[in-house]
Amino acid sequence: MLEIKNIRKEFKNVVAVDGVSFTVEPGKIFGLLGPNGAGKTTTIRMILDIIKPTSGEILIEGKKPGKDFHNLTGYLPEERGLYKKSTVIDIVKYFGSLKGMSAAAAEMSGVALLKQLGISDYKKRKVQELSKGNQQKIQFIVSVIHDPSILILDEPFSGFDPINQELVRDEILRLKSEGKTIILSTHQMDMAEKMCESIFLINKGKEVASGALKEVKRKFGKEFVKIEYEGDAEFIKTLPGVKQADLYGNFGEIEVNDGTDPHSILPVIFEKVTLRKFSIEAPTLNRIFIDTIKETGGE
């Protein structure tokens, strides 16, 4: 379990993180979401004890950072890179040993993970001889080699082809089922929506939205009407009861005013364009992200 209590980080003239609190339960995936420069990386660095918060505290399993604290956490940074001229197994063992493992234990765990990700053959190869996707897998292995109880993954899917994305996803779900506490930081809202139980949306160092995914959706998201059509649908923007409409030519998302029944606009639209599909949709995390960030003056 990871508890973040009212942390704040000031750099010389900037408050990077301001009063952030959240709790991540073991066996859950927690989404740390926000635009670039929102304070995600600073928050992650504080959790990893790379930098100290100016105030507030971080507890892992109820304990403050101290000796061997580093051995509890695993981290996959967004930007990837490895020692190009070293062999795969050397690197895996080195990072294992930096996390307090013995050489033998690190080798065993490394070999097992290489097998799970289907790259056992590359054990003795130099990193520079590997494809980009395989290098990313090594990086993933490095972050979980020591079986950390807290795992922080920053854009874990970037750089993988769809097949390897599935492989990594399964690996993350396996760790989740083993009761690891997992923080997923990403811009891929559909991924976050599919994988996270709870989220924390941060902008300009402050909380914008947080809680269980369902709760956040209920609280911040509004239902909207999705249509697929043929013809000129510009008139929809000026219909009474319509708050705003995003039209893409043969696809549109329409938001209605509070108190307006979405069904009430169907007949009008039906009359003027050829309608192939009409549905009332639950809000997507993507929509919530864009709307709330715009409201709080983000990018």
Partner: peptide
């Protein structure tokens, strides 16, 4: 410079 540019430094510093 290598460790900084490929961000390995962050993994290292999250370990020691």
């Amino acid at each position: 410079v290598e460790e900084k540019s490929n961000r390995l430094i962050e993994i290292i510093l999250s370990s020691c």
